[in-house]
């Protein structure tokens, strides 16, 4: 499903190159629920950006769904993000102008699907995350937990190969965090969605089937 070999990433700071990732190797199987933990600054977010095709590594190889992705053009990367990857972010990143249903349907816009179908699928997806009655609310009318559920629905609507969640519970209190985590677990177990959660919260990491620790740019 996802295979990473000898991945390096450095950023230029002044005249020096500062290494962030120092040789990452990772295999994720279909249907896994993987947690990547580590202290802040260890490179978790950089790895997430690269796995999410938002950033490119300095060197290394990366296969997603049996496709070598690092040689793809910008357009191909965008299409892969659209079809293969679902993102869940710490601060939700919903579009404030749009309703919950429109936010959920957003990825399908780039998919040549009629508006009517998009709407139907958005509603179905909202129902799955338990927000059917909030479809026409705007993000600022929803609680943090509800917003994150909308974001999860948006991540899932394109039936992605993998869901990447970057600190999905970081902005939520522990009770709501657990609800979101329960949603991830049930999606993983009942629908077989492959999920990678990046978190520094040990109580979240513990609930995942596999935990990897990022330490000084290397995954252990």
């Amino acid at each position: 499903m996802l295979k990473i070999r000898d991945l390096y990433k450095s950023y230029q700071v002044g005249h020096e190159m500062m290494p962030i990732l120092k040789g990452i190797n990772l295999d994720v199987e279909k249907g896994e629920l993987l947690a990547v933990t580590g202290s802040s600054g260890s490179g978790k977010s950089t790895l997430m950006s690269i796995m999410g095709l938002l950033d490119k590594p300095t060197r290394g190889r990366y296969w997603l769904d049996n496709k070598e992705v690092l040689r793809c053009s910008d357009d191909e990367l965008a299409t892969m993000r659209n079809r293969k990857i679902g993102f869940v972010f710490q601060s939700f990143y919903l579009l404030q102008r749009l309703t919950a249903a429109e936010n959920v349907g957003c990825p399908l816009r780039y998919n040549k699907i009629s508006l009517r179908k998009i709407h139907r699928r958005s509603l179905a997806m909202l129902e799955k995350v338990g927000l059917a009655d909030r479809a026409s609310h705007r993000p600022d009318e929803l609680s943090g937990g509800q917003q994150q559920r909308v974001a999860i629905a948006r991540a899932l609507i394109g039936k992605p190969a993998i869901v990447l969640a970057d600190e999905p519970t970081g902005a939520l209190d522990s009770h709501v965090s657990q609800e979101i985590m329960d949603l991830f677990i049930s999606l993983n177990q009942q629908e077989g969605v492959t999920i990678i959660i990046i978190t520094h919260d040990q109580s979240i990491a513990k609930q995942c089937s596999r935990v990897m620790i990022m330490e000084d740019g290397v995954l252990k």
């Binding site: 965008a78 993000r81 993102f87 990143y93 957003c106 780039y110 394109g158």
Partner: peptide
């Protein structure tokens, strides 16, 4: 910029 970033993340191409 944030909105553009979100749209790019969910699959908008440059031309979109």
């Amino acid at each position: 910029r944030r909105e553009i970033g979100i749209l790019r993340a969910i699959g908008a191409r440059q031309r979109d």
